[in-house]
């Protein structure tokens, strides 16, 4: 059985949602990891959930990166193990340098919560191996700062290394400004590390793993993780 850990910061609020989705639809072995932990159990995948880790004062995710657990997450990632940051978790990955770039406030200056369409443009990493290239997923976003920014040089790097994983698009798959919910560079919704073992994404896959909630598209991400881990075991 594959083991998942969900990190809990004092202001995390999607920690239970991630736990619930994994426990019921992915793997029975899932545990919470308190942010003050300086030791973590044997795990196969760590999830940094959404929320407002430390109230998001200063900058989203800025204080969280000083939590003891982040050192553990970094070490875990260096070993090539899987780390996925969702929403605030993505912001923490950016702030802690595990992924390149930064988040700005949404260009509308307002929080946005709605279902969006995503195009999976990189399906060769462990988080997307069960998705067909250019498939369109319907997964909700819920954030005030999801406007991904990276300087032109960094952007070229991202492209060159095939680190762009998800892009916002419309229901038909057209990637345009109207389908960009927050103003992200290049409609970027999710990126991975060069090695492909760290994924950050703004949309919430854990919110659509249950048919009763309207969409099952989020499950594809978790099933990919499951499959890639099973293969590597």
């Amino acid at each position: 059985m594959l083991r998942f850990g969900v990190v809990v910061f004092p202001g995390s609020n999607c920690d239970h949602d991630c736990y619930y989705a994994i426990k019921h639809f992915v793997s029975d072995k899932v545990e919470f990891i308190w942010h003050k932990s300086d030791k973590i159990n044997e795990l196969d995948c760590i999830v940094l959930p959404g929320g407002f880790s430390y109230g998001d004062y200063l900058r989203t995710g800025a204080i969280a990166r000083f939590s003891p657990v982040i050192e553990q997450v970094k070490r875990f990632a260096r070993q090539g193990k899987l780390v996925i940051g969702i929403c605030n978790g993505f912001q923490i990955l950016l702030e802690s340098g595990l992924l390149p770039g930064a988040m700005l406030r949404n260009r509308s200056l307002r929080f946005v919560c709605k279902y969006v369409s995503l195009k999976a443009v990189n399906t060769s990493i462990p988080f997307t191996c069960e998705i067909s290239k250019n498939d369109i997923l319907k997964i909700p976003v819920a954030h005030g700062e999801g406007n991904y920014y990276i300087d032109p040089q960094g952007f070229e790097e991202l492209k060159k290394n095939n680190q762009i994983v998800f892009r916002y698009c419309d229901a038909q798959g057209n990637i345009d400004d109207a389908s960009n919910p927050n103003g992200s560079v290049y409609n970027i919704a999710g990126i991975c590390s060069k090695e492909g073992n760290v994924l950050g994404m703004m949309p919430h896959p854990e919110r659509c793993c249950d048919a009763r909630l309207g969409s099952l598209d989020g499950l594809a991400v978790f099933q990919s993780i499951l499959k890639s881990l099973t293969l590597s075991h």
Partner: peptide
């Protein structure tokens, strides 16, 4: 402040 090269939606508004 935001770097000059970074779009500032608040400032623009």
């Amino acid at each position: 402040t935001l770097k000059p090269s970074v779009l500032d939606p608040q400032g623009t508004t």
